[in-house]
């Protein structure tokens, strides 16, 4: 039996009837056509599907859409504000925090949640902080540097973000 859900994604509210077994990542990618959120493993390990659910980073391949009824979700598409990149996006670009880019949306969403709990992290803390997300290209070094640099910037300026 289908269920009606209302979910706010990046500031826009959507109401739809969905099958209870519809995974949140499929709702985001297929129903809303927001394909920035990726599917890497489909087994809860890689973090490519990471989004923010009421501000917390979660793996959207391991959540049913019906569980998110009434929630606020942020995906990578919501990071840019007023035509300006978020400091994390800026830093990933500047410090080559990506190569193929497949892991990047999930990595960015995870980094937002991580920096919320720990705005001034050490390198080791960043490595543990992004241990939910796999990258097969960069060897992580530039991702860690990018997050470090973004954190510096974010400590200086108040950042407007849907998250």
């Amino acid at each position: 039996m289908k269920k009606e859900v209302t979910i706010n994604v990046n500031g826009t509210s959507y109401t739809e009837e969905v099958e209870p077994r519809l995974l949140l990542v499929h709702f985001i990618r297929e129903n809303l056509e927001l394909t920035g959120t990726h599917i890497g493993c489909d087994t809860s390990h890689c973090g490519a599907c990471t989004i923010l659910l009421n501000g917390d980073s979660v793996k959207s391949c391991t959540i049913f859409t019906v569980q998110a009824d009434g929630a606020e979700i942020a995906t990578v598409e919501g990071m840019m504000q007023d035509g300006k990149y978020h400091p994390l996006q800026e830093a990933f670009k500047e410090y080559h925090g990506l190569q193929c880019g497949f892991c990047t949306p999930g990595m960015l969403m995870r980094a937002i949640d991580f920096l919320k709990h720990n705005p001034d992290p050490t390198e080791e803390e960043i490595r543990w902080g992004i241990s939910s997300n796999l990258c097969r290209c960069t060897g992580y070094n530039n991702i860690v540097i990018a997050i470090e640099k973004a954190a510096e910037k974010m400590r200086e300026v108040e950042v407007e973000t849907v998250a």
């Binding site: 809860s44 979660v58 793996k59 949640d113 902080g129 992004i130 241990s131 939910s132």
Partner: peptide, 9 residues
């Protein structure tokens, strides 16, 4: 347990 995103759920 798990990883930081798993621990959120």
């Amino acid at each position: 347990i798990g990883d930081p995103s798993v621990r959120n759920k």
